[in-house]
Design a protein around this nucleic acid. Structure first.
Lengths: 171, 171
DNA sequence: TTGCTCCTCACGTCACGTGAGGTGGC
DNA sequence: TTGCTCCTCACGTCACGTGAGGTGGC
């Protein structure tokens, strides 16, 4: 049997998370002490392990409920989540392109301080992008807005030959 | 001058969005009619255009406020958003791996109905993944959990040679 | 008595969506 | 009178976080 404080330590979660799960009936401790303290059993503990693993997959609490109850629908629920993840990534990629457009417009308008390729690469790598991320970024930029991509590369002072090379790689 | 209904039609947004922007002071119409109807000026209209472009980049409304007010900090705000987008994509990639692990465990446990490569590829492409997405998925799986990646490929009944090929491609 | 863990509300978050109940002009 | 557009609250959403105010055992 575990107290709420022990659960908090074991799972590295906050007390209010467990209070909330109790409230919505996702994980209610199977008993209480005389002084009304929550007591979590081994079963509760194991259930929490499953909940955590679904949370790592970004599944909503109501879908986790469904996963814990039914066996039949569980593959469908997880596949739907997979689909939604792809949509979310695709949205974020579009936002990346939008931001870089906003940033490049800004820099272009301040002609005195126009940005070159190295400064640009530095900003992106400072913000945690790997080479592979940058390649993916070129690809999505090329796929959604090929002309703006060219304009952008030109604005960085990159030569025509290298622009052609980058655009080819982005196919 | 535009009524709230005209704004709704022009920008393809909901009425409650504009009411909310008025409430928080992000975009308050510059005047009202005698009957207390909101009247948006051309300036208000142009401001809304800017707001929309920042929203496309996923910037929060309070950060949009800051972007509209200050010039000095705007590059920093956008770069921070870029950084956050990368974190979010990285989190979603981890969730993808987690989901596929959950799905493959599930399928393995039901040995009678184990899944083969074609069925798996079908699930992923039905859920909107392109070939490129799948390649990226292999890459992130390989980078974060190489052994689980191998186990997973084996569970699909893929031969050792092809597994070696896929893992090489995923570097 | 002091510390510590625990308890139950209740309100805040973010960007709106959804009524309810009412007014004003054609 | 009927329709339509508009108005102002107020409550709900999702997964908790943050107090406030209080109890119980060592």
């Amino acid at each position: 049997m575990y107290s709420i404080g022990q659960m908090v330590n074991e799972f590295k979660i906050s007390r209010s998370t467990l209070l909330y799960y109790d409230k919505i009936g996702l994980l209610s401790p199977s008993s209480r002490t005389e002084s009304n303290y929550r007591k979590y059993s081994e079963k509760d503990f194991d259930k929490m392990i499953r909940i955590e693993s679904y949370k790592k997959a970004g599944v909503s609490l109501s879908d986790i409920q469904a996963l814990l109850n039914s066996k039949s629908e569980s593959a469908k629920i997880l596949e739907l989540r997979l689909e939604k993840i792809n949509e979310e990534i695709s949205l974020l990629r579009k936002q990346q392109v939008e931001i870089t457009t906003l940033l490049s417009n800004k820099k272009i308008s301040k002609k005195s301080k126009s940005m070159n390729k190295d400064q640009w690469v530095k900003i992106l790598s400072d913000s945690g992008m790997s080479e592979e991320d940058m390649m993916n970024w070129h690809k999505s930029f090329e796929a959604s807005l090929p002309e703006a991509h060219t304009d952008f590369l030109e604005s960085l002072g990159i030569g025509k030959l290298e622009i052609r090379r980058i655009k080819k790689m982005s196919k």
